[in-house]
Computed example of a mutant assay.
Amino acid sequence: MAATALPEVLLPTAHRADLDILVGRWSCQPEPDQLPGAYAHLTREAVASGCRFWLQDIRSRTLNDPHTTQWLLTQYFPQMASQLGGRLSVAYLTSPTLMELLVNAPGFRTPDAYATEPFVIAFFGTEGEALTWLEQQRSH
């Protein structure tokens, strides 16, 4: 995909009003210069829907950029939680290969490790597991 791809093509989103979940499905492995536009698009959609429960389908991605991860954890997710007025819950739907890379990476944290954070993230191999977890987060 060219670096000039539109953010809504790179990261199509939809607010599932019936579940109150914002779904984002990454269409490919983004180039680093595509990420600011994609996250700006995600921000606009989250704010428009007021939704704090996100399902991010990253099965088409093959690697995780450590700099982006650091930015997400230290800036983006805390800012989004503040902007949305409550704890942000993000369920990542991932491929088995990427899941293995993520859980074996230095600094990987389980959802329990986010207890004092304004956000929580978790990784799943099936959409059903991810949706069940997001529903459970509503009571936290």
Results as ranks from 00 to 15, higher is better:
M1A: 09
M1F: 09
A2Q: 07
A2S: 15
A3V: 13
A5T: 05
L6C: 08
P7I: 08
P7R: 02
L11R: 05
L11I: 12
L11E: 04
T13K: 00
T13F: 04
R16D: 15
D18W: 07
W26I: 12
S27F: 08
P30C: 15
P32E: 06
D33E: 15
D33F: 07
A38D: 02
A38Y: 00
A40M: 11
A40V: 14
H41C: 10
L42E: 02
L42F: 06
T43D: 03
A46D: 07
A46P: 02
A48I: 03
S49E: 05
G50D: 03
G50R: 07
R52M: 02
R52H: 05
W54T: 02
W54C: 02
L55K: 09
Q56S: 12
R59D: 03
R59Q: 14
R61A: 11
T62E: 14
L63D: 14
N64P: 02
P66M: 11
W71V: 10
T74Y: 05
Y76A: 10
Y76F: 15
P78Q: 09
P78S: 11
A81G: 11
L84F: 05
L84G: 01
G85M: 09
V90E: 04
Y92W: 14
Y92E: 13
T94Y: 03
P96T: 11
T97F: 11
M99N: 11
L101P: 00
A105M: 12
P106T: 10
P106S: 13
P111H: 10
D112H: 08
A113W: 03
T116A: 14
E117D: 14
P118R: 08
F119E: 01
V120G: 00
T126M: 07
E129Q: 09
L131Y: 03
T132N: 10
L134S: 00
R138P: 00
S139D: 03
H140I: 08
